[in-house]
Amino acid sequence: MNMATVSMKCPNCGGELIFDPKSQKYKCEYCGSDFALDEISTEEAATQAASDVVQEREDTSDNHTQQRTAGAEDAAVLYTCPSCGAQIVTDQTTAATFCYYCHNPVLLSEQLSGAFHPDQIIPFEIDRKQAEEHFLDFVHKKKFVPNAFFQKNQIEKLTGIYFPYWVCDAEVEGSLTAEGNKVRVWVSGDEEFTETRIYRMEREGHVSLREITKHALKKTDNLLAEGVLPYDFSKAAEFRMGYLSGFYAEKRDIERKELEEEVHREVENCTRDLLEDTIHGYNGVHILSDHIRPIREQWKYTLLPVWTVTYKGMNGKMYYYSMNGQNGKTYGELPVDRKKVFLFGALCGGIALVIMLLLGYFIF
């Protein structure tokens, strides 16, 4: 499947433009120019590119059908690099990438058009240099990480990716009925008395829950994608293709309907907990009944920035490191170098043995 592409060009020198997280502007790495977001528009170009590809497919559909390999349509897409003309194969969820040959950023506009056009995006605020510093600081705090994690080629694997998420705002009305008891114990003479009073309680409330965030990409490790939450959605912007230039991006392959049951369950549980938290001063509380009624839901398809590193350990296990591209929050399960653990244990044991020998020599 041939894919429409968009490339952002510098008006001054024709070089590739990338989005710079530090300045929040588009930057040309060739002549050093920078441009405000409103000065460079890729939306019209993206729409036209997608339209051209659709027309091309209609005109040559029979020829394309003959060229497709059985099963390949579900696994990969083909795009032509707008900078060097090379044809590159990538998977179906890729929306922004780099040309393997000329290394220029390429935006696959059709991947994020129509029903897959994101409602909003939170741009990267942490650039690559800051991300590397965060990564090294995170790794240095771990005593037994393999030396390979400190090597330059490992740091170069640090990748900025926009992952797709569904973000839901919900409003509900909730009510519950409960019984609470208060116990009083006292002693009179030689006898102990216990008094239990039972109270009936009712609670009602209007609850607004904001920014319930669920990742929407099947191939992404769930902990990798959700371990960097939350984000500050007050900084969310209307989606523009230009934000993706210089980064990788994925489009969703998990639809809203697949997540609704999970989100509804979370909303109900959270509402119930909030109502229960208003009950105080009882020795015990028993919930008799509850009723939670949804009023309004708003879902937004959102791209969020994540810096990632993957590492294959000696045991063959894949380890993941991810960092929130907005605030720097990190998540990661790092491998352990058994040799370092053994040497550290041997060193501690040797020191302990020397101390015991010295104590024995002076005491006895």
Score class of each variant (00 low, 15 high):
E262I: 13
L303I: 09
P164N: 07
F193W: 14
Y321F: 15
R240W: 00
Y199H: 14
G85S: 08
H103R: 10
V185M: 02
K317T: 13
L224M: 15
K152T: 12
W186C: 02
V6F: 06
K129N: 06
E44M: 11
C28P: 02
Y361F: 15
N63G: 02
D337T: 01
K219F: 06
V309P: 00
K219Y: 00
I351W: 05
L136P: 02
L259I: 07
V183D: 02
K22D: 05
A76S: 08
I292G: 03
E133L: 13
E73N: 07
P11Q: 07
L274R: 09
H103F: 10
T47C: 10
S23M: 14
W186V: 00
Q154C: 05
D62I: 09
T80N: 13
E16D: 10
K235G: 01
Y231T: 04
Q154D: 07
E195I: 11
R184Q: 06
F344K: 14
R128C: 02
T220G: 01
Y331L: 05
M241D: 12
L223W: 03
Y282H: 04
L223D: 09
Q298K: 15
C102M: 05
E192T: 10
D277A: 13
E266L: 14
Y282Q: 05
H103V: 08
S322H: 04
E211I: 01
M314A: 12
E44I: 14
C99H: 05
Q48R: 15
P118S: 05
G325D: 00
T330Q: 15
V285N: 02
R240G: 00
H291R: 15
F163I: 10
P11R: 11
Y26Q: 03
V306S: 04
T93P: 00
S113A: 15
G114Y: 12
S245I: 06
L107H: 06
R200A: 07
P335E: 01
G15H: 03
H134G: 06
A75I: 10
K218P: 00
G160V: 05
Y331Q: 01
V53W: 09
L78N: 10
V54Y: 12
Q92K: 13
F144N: 08
P146A: 07
Q151H: 15
L37A: 07
K339Q: 13
D91V: 09
M314V: 02
V145I: 01
A46E: 13
T80M: 11
L108S: 02
A36Q: 09
V77L: 13
D190M: 12
K152L: 11
F124R: 03
K257L: 11
E171P: 04
V187L: 14
S23E: 12
I292F: 01
E266I: 10
Y165W: 09
V53I: 13
Y30L: 15
W299E: 09
E276T: 00
A225I: 10
P21Y: 03
A76F: 09
D253V: 04
T42S: 13
P305I: 09
G174W: 08
R240L: 10
M1W: 08
S175I: 12
K141P: 00
